[in-house]
Design a protein around this nucleic acid. Structure first.
Lengths: 338, 338
DNA sequence: TGAGGTCTCTGCAACGATGTAGACATCATG
DNA sequence: CATGATGTCTACATCGTTGCAGAGACCTCA
């Protein structure tokens, strides 16, 4: 089971362990003749360095962990892809874990027996955990927070400007002349901070134009999945005065809403226009294709990984607050033909 | 940076390192009084065990790696989710890596400096690597292969019956009375074994019914993404005698094809019926919703993790070949209303 | 009372690698 | 020829943990 160690190679080649190590790493000067001799034995035995031992000695593992609520949510899958790619550039590999939005599971991450100590750093996309909890645990592993929550400057944080993103999406609909713009995805409770920011943006777009918000059109959802998007849309369609546009707080909600609209025979965008947030690839291929506010995911990943690595190096400035640009991508669900 | 070690705690509590270790692990008998005293110091210093050191000592890490071509392909994201869940049941965590279908990157996994030695085992969904290559590398880390390739019994292998799956999909279309059933996704070259199996199933369904296959209708694609599905569909629609049904080798191709059909104003399923493979959630919400052959992904994950863990334990029988059931899920893209 | 058996606790070695310091040749230099 | 600079190689300690063997203290029982 266990492979040959430096010791095995050293014995067989009649040299010191250290010399074999030097050959393997090409560090110190080793004569060509000896190097060749050792190399032969290395190949014969099929030596592979034991990275665990190397890590212990060096005090770092070259691994970071990415913790997201759900990996099968396209936004997180696409983000994970970018993070893995960005980390690879720096020679790091990424452990992906998912919390299922489960508070206990999120907290276990910080507990005594968490595997967090196996990683040089943590990228955390929290749903339920609060800044206070994070602060209390005297966690030694550097952390960068992604996207969710307001953390008043205690931690490194990478996100888009959620208020602006929501504002842009809503403004787009209002500028098309829609006057009953619904919002799907509010979460008016403690852990729904991102959603609340988007609600603020939604209201602000109305306020700037001197338009009222019909509170009936603001529909909260417990999560951001397709199913609830469809359910919320069904409810809106049942109103005596249904909306002529919908701003959904993410693309999955929007895709669910699209589905509900199509099923109900409502024309999109003629009768109801739809906008989402996230810029997932799926929205390019839906029918109709989905207008969305897309964060620059590659840039989020690069910034997050970069910040984390400098925190690991100790070169990080205190608590970076990084805002990543987003842009509105107009497609059929608001523009008709594209 | 580095946290307190057992030594630090031991010194402060005036006990041996070993005793602190015993308190932490609850292993050996420690008197209640001493246990309490040590616990106080543990809490004071905020001790966290160094998992790297523990792993070195114990020779295992409690981590397995899952290697997939692309994490943002919904099938793999959904599979990754199930694998992470299945591994968690056994106390394992999962490192997710993606190869981008890049041959060099896949091979690097097995090379001298791969991080494979950091994991107790590997779940590998290979695209380009061959059994021969796998065999040559004297890899000491247990491997279970997922889905792709034919490996003639040299490795543990978990997959669906690709021929049967393709047969079932095609048969469904033929049984609806379609007579020009196209196939999108063939890969008639060395690394396209899965695709080739599906082509066999496609042909078999025709053969069993004594129906001919029009070779013009078998369209190869370089990968299994939405874009190529749309492109292939465009080509098929341009034929003098276009198909009345399409079997796509995965759901992404099918969703791309749906998009192309809708854009071209072709009615689905009235003019052309569409079937995919994979059972991704996206297909439930597309318009029209997508008929698909769905493998039992949770079962794939459970079987793969289970097999891998018994290989790690050494209790594995030689080279398990596990076939996971699949089932046809009929939706609007072939059935009209659902 | 002393032999044997718990019950607690400790010290040493080991996991497999690397950092450091120095040993030993060899060579050039004054 | 002594000196020191190089070039090669080695021995030892160390990273933080756990396995193992055993040391004492205490109790039990003949």
């Amino acid at each position: 089971m266990a492979g040959p160690t430096l010791r095995d190679v050293a014995r067989r080649a009649n040299v010191s362990i250290r010399t074999v190590s030097n050959v393997v790493n090409g560090y110190a000067p080793v004569s060509d003749e000896l190097r060749a001799r050792v190399q032969v034995v290395l190949d014969e035995l099929g030596y592979r360095p034991n990275l665990i031992a190397r890590n212990l000695r060096q005090g770092r593992t070259g691994m970071i962990a990415l913790v997201v609520p759900e990996l099968d949510v396209p936004y997180f899958a696409e983000l994970a892809r970018e993070v893995i790619t960005a980390a690879r550039v720096h020679g790091y590999v990424v452990m992906v874990d998912q919390t299922d939005g489960d508070a206990d599971h999120e907290r276990a991450l910080l507990g005594r027996d968490s595997r967090a100590t196996m990683f040089d750093g943590l990228l955390l996309s929290p749903l339920t955990i609060t800044a206070e909890e994070l602060r209390q645990r005297g966690n030694r592993v550097p952390i960068v927070l992604l996207g969710e929550h307001i953390f008043n400057g205690s931690f490194h944080h990478v996100a888009i400007d959620n208020v602006a993103a929501a504002h842009d999406a809503t403004a787009h609909l209002l500028d098309l002349g829609r006057r009953r713009v619904a919002a799907i995805g509010d979460q008016p409770y403690a852990t729904g901070e991102t959603a609340q920011l988007r609600t603020i943006g939604y209201r602000r777009a109305h306020a700037r134009r001197g338009l009222p918000v019909d509170e009936e059109l603001v529909v909260p959802t417990a999560n951001f999945h397709r199913r609830l998007g469809a359910a919320a849309m069904d409810r809106l369609l049942a109103l005596p005065e249904p909306p002529d546009a919908v701003f959904c707080y993410n693309d999955l909600l929007a895709l669910g809403a699209l589905r509900a609209l199509t099923r109900a025979g409502v024309r999109v965008p003629d009768d109801v226009a739809v906008v989402g947030v996230d810029g997932v690839e799926e929205g390019q291929y839906s029918t109709p294709s989905l207008t969305t506010v897309a964060p620059d995911k590659a840039e989020i990943a690069r910034a997050a990984v970069g910040t984390l690595l400098s925190a690991i190096d100790g070169t990080a400035t205190s608590a970076a607050e990084i805002v990543i640009p987003h842009r509105l991508i107009v497609r059929e669900s608001t523009a008709g033909e594209v």
